[in-house]
Design a protein around this nucleic acid. Sequence first.
DNA 1: TTGTAGACTGCCGTCGACA
DNA 2: ATGTCGACGGCAGTCTACA
Lengths: 68, 68
Amino acid sequence: MDIKEKFGQRLRVLRKDKGLSQEELAEKSGLNRPYISAIEQGKRNVSLEVMEKLAEAMSLNIKSLIDF
Amino acid sequence: MDIKEKFGQRLRVLRKDKGLSQEELAEKSGLNRPYISAIEQGKRNVSLEVMEKLAEAMSLNIKSLIDF
DNA sequence: TTGTAGACTGCCGTCGACA
DNA sequence: ATGTCGACGGCAGTCTACA
Protein backbone atom coordinates (compact mmCIF):
# COMPACT_ATOMS: atom_id res chain seq x y z
CA MET A 1 0.00 0.00 0.00
CA ASP A 2 2.04 2.94 -1.21
CA ILE A 3 1.41 6.61 -0.63
CA LYS A 4 -0.36 7.14 -3.95
CA GLU A 5 -2.90 4.47 -3.04
CA LYS A 6 -3.40 5.94 0.41
CA PHE A 7 -3.99 9.35 -1.09
CA GLY A 8 -6.42 7.95 -3.64
CA GLN A 9 -8.47 6.14 -1.01
CA ARG A 10 -8.56 9.23 1.16
CA LEU A 11 -9.68 11.38 -1.76
CA ARG A 12 -12.49 8.99 -2.65
CA VAL A 13 -13.77 8.96 0.93
CA LEU A 14 -13.73 12.74 1.20
CA ARG A 15 -15.35 13.23 -2.17
CA LYS A 16 -18.23 10.93 -1.28
CA ASP A 17 -18.58 12.60 2.11
CA LYS A 18 -19.21 15.80 0.20
CA GLY A 19 -21.73 14.06 -2.02
CA LEU A 20 -19.80 14.82 -5.19
CA SER A 21 -19.35 12.74 -8.34
CA GLN A 22 -15.94 12.54 -10.00
CA GLU A 23 -17.41 14.71 -12.73
CA GLU A 24 -18.47 17.38 -10.25
CA LEU A 25 -15.15 17.33 -8.43
CA ALA A 26 -13.39 17.62 -11.77
CA GLU A 27 -15.17 20.78 -12.78
CA LYS A 28 -14.91 22.39 -9.34
CA SER A 29 -11.18 21.70 -9.16
CA GLY A 30 -10.41 22.56 -12.76
CA LEU A 31 -8.99 19.08 -13.37
CA ASN A 32 -10.36 16.49 -15.79
CA ARG A 33 -12.46 13.50 -14.84
CA PRO A 34 -10.28 10.64 -16.15
CA TYR A 35 -7.43 12.09 -14.13
CA ILE A 36 -9.51 12.16 -10.93
CA SER A 37 -10.42 8.55 -11.60
CA ALA A 38 -6.77 7.54 -11.93
CA ILE A 39 -5.80 9.42 -8.77
CA GLU A 40 -8.44 7.61 -6.72
CA GLN A 41 -7.07 4.31 -7.93
CA GLY A 42 -3.60 5.24 -6.70
CA LYS A 43 -2.14 5.36 -10.20
CA ARG A 44 -0.93 8.95 -10.11
CA ASN A 45 1.77 10.77 -8.21
CA VAL A 46 -0.06 14.05 -7.65
CA SER A 47 1.68 17.38 -7.11
CA LEU A 48 1.29 20.11 -4.50
CA GLU A 49 -0.74 22.27 -6.88
CA VAL A 50 -3.14 19.46 -7.70
CA MET A 51 -3.59 18.73 -3.99
CA GLU A 52 -4.39 22.39 -3.44
CA LYS A 53 -6.99 22.40 -6.22
CA LEU A 54 -8.65 19.28 -4.84
CA ALA A 55 -8.69 20.65 -1.30
CA GLU A 56 -10.20 23.96 -2.39
CA ALA A 57 -12.84 22.23 -4.47
CA MET A 58 -13.98 20.36 -1.37
CA SER A 59 -13.59 23.28 1.04
CA LEU A 60 -10.91 21.43 2.99
CA ASN A 61 -7.34 22.23 3.91
CA ILE A 62 -4.55 20.25 2.32
CA LYS A 63 -3.56 18.54 5.55
CA SER A 64 -6.88 16.73 5.73
CA LEU A 65 -6.15 15.24 2.30
CA ILE A 66 -3.09 13.43 3.61
CA ASP A 67 -4.53 12.51 6.98
CA PHE A 68 -3.48 8.89 6.95
CA MET B 1 2.90 33.62 -1.81
CA ASP B 2 1.86 30.44 -3.55
CA ILE B 3 1.86 26.93 -2.18
CA LYS B 4 5.21 26.01 -3.67
CA GLU B 5 6.84 28.92 -1.85
CA LYS B 6 5.12 28.00 1.41
CA PHE B 7 6.32 24.44 1.07
CA GLY B 8 9.86 25.59 0.30
CA GLN B 9 10.02 27.85 3.33
CA ARG B 10 8.68 25.13 5.55
CA LEU B 11 11.20 22.63 4.23
CA ARG B 12 14.09 25.01 4.84
CA VAL B 13 13.00 25.63 8.43
CA LEU B 14 12.63 21.93 9.17
CA ARG B 15 15.93 21.04 7.54
CA LYS B 16 17.81 23.59 9.59
CA ASP B 17 16.02 22.45 12.74
CA LYS B 18 17.51 19.04 12.08
CA GLY B 19 20.94 20.58 11.54
CA LEU B 20 21.22 19.24 8.02
CA SER B 21 22.82 20.81 4.94
CA GLN B 22 21.07 20.59 1.57
CA GLU B 23 23.75 18.11 0.61
CA GLU B 24 23.01 15.88 3.61
CA LEU B 25 19.27 16.04 3.07
CA ALA B 26 19.82 15.16 -0.57
CA GLU B 27 21.70 11.98 0.18
CA LYS B 28 19.37 10.90 2.99
CA SER B 29 16.31 11.42 0.81
CA GLY B 30 17.79 9.99 -2.37
CA LEU B 31 17.18 13.25 -4.22
CA ASN B 32 19.83 15.52 -5.70
CA ARG B 33 21.09 18.73 -4.15
CA PRO B 34 20.25 21.25 -6.91
CA TYR B 35 16.70 19.97 -6.78
CA ILE B 36 16.47 20.49 -3.01
CA SER B 37 17.75 24.01 -3.53
CA ALA B 38 15.08 24.77 -6.11
CA ILE B 39 12.33 23.32 -3.91
CA GLU B 40 13.32 25.55 -0.98
CA GLN B 41 13.09 28.56 -3.26
CA GLY B 42 9.53 27.65 -4.20
CA LYS B 43 10.44 26.94 -7.82
CA ARG B 44 9.25 23.34 -7.93
CA ASN B 45 5.86 21.69 -7.77
CA VAL B 46 6.82 18.62 -5.73
CA SER B 47 4.95 15.33 -5.85
CA LEU B 48 3.58 13.04 -3.15
CA GLU B 49 6.52 10.65 -3.50
CA VAL B 50 9.08 13.42 -3.14
CA MET B 51 7.27 14.73 -0.07
CA GLU B 52 7.41 11.24 1.39
CA LYS B 53 11.16 10.94 0.75
CA LEU B 54 11.82 14.32 2.36
CA ALA B 55 9.68 13.49 5.39
CA GLU B 56 11.38 10.14 5.92
CA ALA B 57 14.83 11.67 5.60
CA MET B 58 13.99 14.04 8.44
CA SER B 59 12.10 11.50 10.55
CA LEU B 60 8.87 13.46 10.22
CA ASN B 61 5.42 12.64 8.95
CA ILE B 62 4.23 14.22 5.73
CA LYS B 63 1.59 16.33 7.45
CA SER B 64 4.25 18.31 9.29
CA LEU B 65 5.77 19.23 5.93
CA ILE B 66 2.63 21.04 4.87
CA ASP B 67 1.81 22.51 8.26
CA PHE B 68 1.13 26.03 7.05
C1' DT C 1 27.48 25.54 1.59
C1' DT C 2 24.24 27.17 -1.71
C1' DG C 3 22.48 28.93 -6.32
C1' DT C 4 22.36 28.38 -11.09
C1' DA C 5 22.69 26.53 -15.87
C1' DG C 6 21.88 23.16 -19.56
C1' DA C 7 20.65 18.84 -21.30
C1' DC C 8 18.25 14.73 -20.69
C1' DT C 9 14.38 10.98 -19.64
C1' DG C 10 10.16 9.92 -17.99
C1' DC C 11 5.80 11.08 -16.30
C1' DC C 12 2.18 14.57 -15.01
C1' DG C 13 -1.98 16.48 -16.50
C1' DT C 14 -5.17 17.31 -20.75
C1' DC C 15 -8.55 15.83 -23.93
C1' DG C 16 -11.90 13.08 -26.90
C1' DA C 17 -13.99 8.83 -27.21
C1' DC C 18 -15.96 4.36 -25.99
C1' DA C 19 -17.60 0.89 -22.90
C1' DA D 1 -21.36 7.57 -12.85
C1' DT D 2 -16.83 5.45 -13.59
C1' DG D 3 -12.80 3.11 -15.98
C1' DT D 4 -9.83 3.02 -19.82
C1' DC D 5 -7.31 4.13 -23.96
C1' DG D 6 -4.05 6.86 -26.94
C1' DA D 7 -1.90 10.95 -28.14
C1' DC D 8 0.12 15.20 -26.78
C1' DG D 9 2.89 19.33 -24.52
C1' DG D 10 5.07 20.63 -20.68
C1' DC D 11 7.45 19.99 -16.59
C1' DA D 12 9.27 16.88 -12.68
C1' DG D 13 13.47 15.03 -11.27
C1' DT D 14 18.59 13.76 -12.61
C1' DC D 15 23.27 14.94 -13.38
C1' DT D 16 27.64 17.56 -14.20
C1' DA D 17 29.84 21.73 -13.66
C1' DC D 18 30.89 26.46 -12.23
C1' DA D 19 30.46 30.59 -9.36
